[in-house]
């Protein structure tokens, strides 16, 4: 397996050893997010995690940040690690955005810098004053995302992890987007970055120099992020094709068409799965026969190897 040579003179800041994690999907299905994975991340490295299934990559980043426990194996963190940027499960919907932000500041701010950090949060989030003091649960989704992102950016960590950046396009030239970019680049300057690339490939390619491709819970490639992306795309395409064939076979058996390939002409099938929709497709359509099959994926569309 190709790999970037790690610096020999440094201790890893994140050291994952023989770790496994199972993710629950839907009501009664589980699949391994990663299996027996050993990974070292060194100070200053910028790592992007690409997964065929978005949940694999997100779960690995969450485990590396420490917000999700491992099922087995161990993780050593050699410094302070942020929670996955763009998420925040500690926010209470009953409390106002201001109270939630203040609580985070009281836990993470340097002594004497709580007010300055709160000011930075308000500036980055750009929340109207009238909304800021209302219960967080009543906020529009876009404003919630803004506050989650702003609170993540307000504090300095040795390792910055990024899960899902909603409400900010890192290439935008809008003054607020530029201000967030400045703040983000300041936070990662000289520090370690771990990014979940699913759903934000452009961001991962722009900021990371090392990639990790996860397929069915196993690392299939570690190295150039662009190659990781291509590998994952190829694998996703292959899995989609397999799934399509399986669904078509099922359709054929249901409607009595002998040749499964006869029903294989619908190229649109599965294209509406979303940008990272490799996990499940609960609604599929057979164009050849004009039969609408709802829930076909739930019985037979498990991702290969995820049974």
């Amino acid at each position: 397996m190709p790999s970037l040579s790690p610096p020999q003179d440094l201790e890893p800041i994140l050291d994952l050893r023989d770790a496994s994690k199972v993710v629950v999907e839907g009501v009664n299905r589980t699949f391994p997010a990663f299996r027996n994975l050993s990974l070292k991340v060194y100070p200053g490295e910028r790592l992007a995690v690409f997964g065929v299934n978005g949940a694999e990559a997100r779960s690995l980043v969450a485990c590396l940040s420490g917000v999700e426990p491992l099922d087995s194996g161990s993780l050593d963190q050699g410094g302070s690690v942020s929670w996955p940027m763009g998420t925040n499960d500690a926010f209470s919907g009953k409390l106002s955005g201001y109270v939630n932000a203040r609580f985070a500041a009281e836990v993470y701010s340097q002594p004497g810098e709580i007010e300055a950090d709160l000011q930075l949060i308000q500036e980055l989030a750009d929340i109207p004053e009238t909304v800021y003091h209302k219960p967080f649960g009543d906020w529009p989704a876009a404003l919630k995302d803004s506050l989650r992102l702003a609170v993540s950016l307000a504090f300095a960590f040795d390792v910055v992890t990024v899960a899902r950046l909603a409400g900010w396009d890192h290439r935008a030239i809008h003054p607020r987007a530029v201000r967030i970019r400045e703040c983000f680049e300041q936070r990662i300057d000289g520090r370690t970055l771990v990014v979940c690339a699913n759903g934000q490939n452009g961001f991962a390619l722009d900021y990371c120099e090392r990639g990790l491709a996860l397929v069915d819970g196993l690392v299939v490639y570690e190295g150039d992020p662009e190659i990781c992306l291509e590998l994952v795309k190829e694998e996703a395409k292959r899995q989609k094709q397999q799934r399509r064939q399986r669904i078509n076979r099922r359709i054929s058996s249901l409607v009595g068409v002998d040749d499964p390939d006869a029903a294989d002409g619908d190229d649109e099938l599965g294209d509406d799965l979303g940008d990272e929709g490799f996990a499940d497709d609960s609604t599929s359509r057979s164009g050849g026969n004009g039969v609408l099959i709802v829930g076909a994926g739930s019985s037979g569309s498990q991702v290969p190897g995820h049974a």
Partner: peptide, 24 residues
């Protein structure tokens, strides 16, 4: 410094709990 941080964190949790009870 660690002791002061501990006091600050515990006070923050207590204040949040009070605010949460008031909100509920």
């Amino acid at each position: 410094a660690q002791l002061l941080l501990q006091v600050r964190v515990v006070s923050a949790v207590a204040r949040r709990e009070l605010q949460l009870r008031a909100a509920k």
